[in-house]
Design a protein around this nucleic acid. Structure first.
Lengths: 147, 147
DNA sequence: GCTTGACAACTTAATATTGAAGTATTCGAC
DNA sequence: GTCGAATACTTCAATATTAAGTTGTCAAGC
C-alpha cells in the first residue's frame, strides 16, 4: 500500500501509519460484523443494543457520546430499533428534556444471544496478534485516540 | 473505557484492543478531515480525488477496491464530484464495460491545493507517537488488516 | 454465429450520518 | 417571577453506504 506522496520522512511515515490504521479498522469492522446479517441488525443498531446491555439504560445523548455519533443520528437508529420492539423510550419525569432508552425483553434476548458471536469474532480476528502485541496496540491507540 | 464483559482473559483483551483501535481511527478521522469543511468536500470525495491524484485515472471498480467501498457507492460519490466538475467519466473504447474516472483541471487544482493540509493534519496527529512507535503501530495494523 | 457465464456499471430501497434549524424544557441571573 | 442561556431531542436536506437486482459488454465454448 503506502502513498505515492514525496515529502519529508516524518510526513511519509505519518501518512503511511495513518493509512494502515484506517485499513485495519475498516477491514476488521467488516469481518467482525458479518454475522449481524443473520439477525438483520446494522452495526449502529448493534452498538446501541450492546451499550444498553453492558451499561444499562442510557439517554440518547449519552448513547451518542459513547458511540461517537450525533444526536440526530441516535434519533433515527433508536427509531428503527423501537419499530422492531427491541428498545423502549421513556421520558424522564425528573427532567423532561431527557429520554432514557431501555432494552425490551425481546431486545435483551436478542443481544444476549448474539453478543457471544461478537466476542468470538473479535477474539478470532485478534488472534493474529500475540497477547503482548495486543497490549502494545492498545496503548498506542489510546495515545492516538485520546481527546 | 473498556467493556463490562466478563469472559476469558483472551476475549477480554481482544475486545479491549478492538475498541481502542476503533476509537483511535474514528477519533483521528474526525480530527484529520476537519479542514475539508472549508472546501465543502466529504471524506469520500476527498478519498476519490486523492486516489486519482496519486494513482492516476482509475475505473470505478478500482476506486471502490482502493477505498474499501461498494460499486454502488462509487457511482454516487463520482456523480456528486462530476456535478461540481471536479472529475470526468470516460467510457473505455477498448472494453466498453469500464468507465475511467479522470481529474478535471478544477479537480486537480483543488486536490493539489488541499492535499498539503491533509499531510499537515496527519503529521500533527501522529506526533503523539515517536517514529518507532509509528513503525510498530504500522506493523501491527498491517498484520490485522491484511486479508 | 449463438449461448452462457462473468463482470462492470447503474438503479433502487433502506438505513446511516452529519449539520443546521427548530421545539421543548430546565436553570440561573436579575 | 421573568428572561436568556444551555440542554435534549426532533426534523430536514444532503450525502453516504450497502445489498440486491438490472443492463450492457465481453469472452469462451459449442
Amino acid at each position: 500500500m503506502g502513498t505515492k506522496y514525496q515529502g519529508t520522512e516524518e510526513a511519509t511515515r505519518a501518512l503511511d501509519t495513518y493509512i494502515k490504521l484506517m485499513r485495519a479498522s475498516e477491514s476488521l469492522t467488516h469481518r467482525i460484523h458479518r454475522h449481524l446479517h443473520d439477525v438483520d441488525l446494522t452495526i449502529s443498531q448493534f452498538g446501541v443494543l450492546e451499550a444498553l446491555l453492558h451499561l444499562g439504560s442510557l439517554c440518547q445523548s449519552e448513547l451518542a457520546h459513547k458511540l461517537l455519533r450525533t444526536g440526530g443520528n441516535m434519533t433515527l437508529v433508536i427509531d428503527n430499533l423501537e419499530k422492531r420492539d427491541l428498545v423502549r423510550r421513556e421520558r424522564s419525569s425528573i427532567d423532561r428534556r431527557f429520554i432514557s432508552v431501555h432494552l425490551t425483553e425481546a431486545g435483551r434476548t436478542l443481544i444476549e444471544r448474539i453478543f457471544p458471536r461478537h466476542v468470538e469474532a473479535v477474539t478470532q480476528a485478534m488472534q493474529r496478534l500475540t497477547a503482548e502485541e495486543q497490549e502494545t496496540l492498545s496503548n498506542l491507540c489510546r495515545k492516538l485516540g485520546s481527546p
